[in-house]
């Protein structure tokens, strides 16, 4: 498959010179995110998240399974991410590219390894029945910063999802249909948000938050920070790219802390709005 053309020299120079004056092509400030647009589907746990033209759908479903013998008291969470050529012609359907590996591994680290969902609360009957949560992430369009968008979609979907109420009497497990009893939200430890900063080869250009596709391709290194509003870092990843001074990294971490708080406020508000509109539906 032909690789998409790399940006032309004038394009490159234009971007660099405008970034030098702290101007971005889409009119944002260097440290301004595109405002995420969250759309909730009719089902619980179906979220579409858009950062500008980058769009991702995340969907959560749950089913009962028998737990593996080594972890009888914990539920299972699995994440499936699909980066098909639909999102961008850069994604091939064959062997996963480095970028795909990074995205799937980051999703795994942010949404699963950092203990977002209390796995023990997903246990219904020790050693017999646990909930298996399946989070599927479909990347629809890539216009830059796919990673932050997927993480945001994933975490909001988990927050939005409600699992059916279950009742355990002895060894008998009854699952109540959502129409009988109100489904319960997942018990979550924290809500991490992923923020990506792009660095450029010229050291005088300040880093930009939430890079667009062009900025991402022309960047000389990304610094990804996942953290929650309680100032806890979950993942910091800077693999290669331009070397940075330690103080610079700490400064960026400081900025990320504030951004995560803003993002958290926004997400909470959206979830509240959606839930307010929804309570009417549940009988």
């Amino acid at each position: 498959m032909p690789r998409p053309p790399s940006p032309s020299i004038p394009e490159k120079e234009f971007l660099y010179s405008s970034l030098k004056q702290s101007l971005r092509l889409d009119g944002r400030n260097p440290l301004e995110m595109r405002t995420p647009a969250l759309t909730f589907g009719p089902e619980l746990g179906w979220v579409e998240c858009a950062l500008g033209k980058t769009r991702v759908i995340a969907q959560v479903d749950a089913k009962m399974v028998k737990p593996p013998p080594e972890r009888p008291l914990e539920g299972i969470i699995s994440i499936h991410s699909e980066l098909s050529p639909m999102a961008s012609s850069e994604y091939d359907s064959g062997r996963p590219s480095d970028e795909e590996v990074t995205i799937t591994r980051m999703l795994d680290k942010v949404l699963r390894r950092s203990d977002v969902v209390d796995k023990e609360s997903l246990c219904v009957l020790a050693g017999q029945r646990v909930w298996h949560l399946r989070l599927t992430i479909h990347c629809l369009a890539d216009a830059g910063n796919m990673l932050d968008c997927s993480c945001l979609a994933g975490i909001v979907a988990l927050r939005h999802f409600r699992r059916p109420e279950v009742e355990v009497v002895g060894d008998e497990v009854t699952v109540h249909h959502p129409s009988e009893r109100a489904p319960v939200p997942l018990s979550m430890h924290h809500t991490p948000y992923c923020l990506t900063f792009a660095y450029f080869p010229d050291a005088t250009i300040l880093p930009v938050l939430d890079p667009s596709h062009l900025e991402q391709t022309l960047s000389a290194g990304l610094l990804t920070i996942a953290l929650n509003a309680q100032r806890e870092l979950c993942v910091v990843q800077k693999a290669g790219g331009v070397p940075l001074a330690p103080d610079e990294i700490l400064r960026i971490v400081g900025i990320a802390v504030d951004k995560a708080k803003e993002l958290d406020k926004l997400v909470e508000q959206k979830l509240k709005e959606d839930w307010a509109g929804r309570t009417v539906e549940v009988r």
């Binding site: 100032r231 979950c234 800077k238 990294i249 971490v253």
Partner: peptide
């Protein structure tokens, strides 16, 4: 770290850690 300039090329954190603690180890590791 790159010892000549003292700059950092790689940071990888995969587990939950408070920001203040992060700064502490980060400097120490450097």
């Amino acid at each position: 770290v790159m010892p000549r300039t003292g700059k950092v090329t790689l940071v990888a954190l995969e587990t939950r850690l408070h920001v203040d603690r992060f700064a502490e180890i980060f400097k120490l590791a450097g």
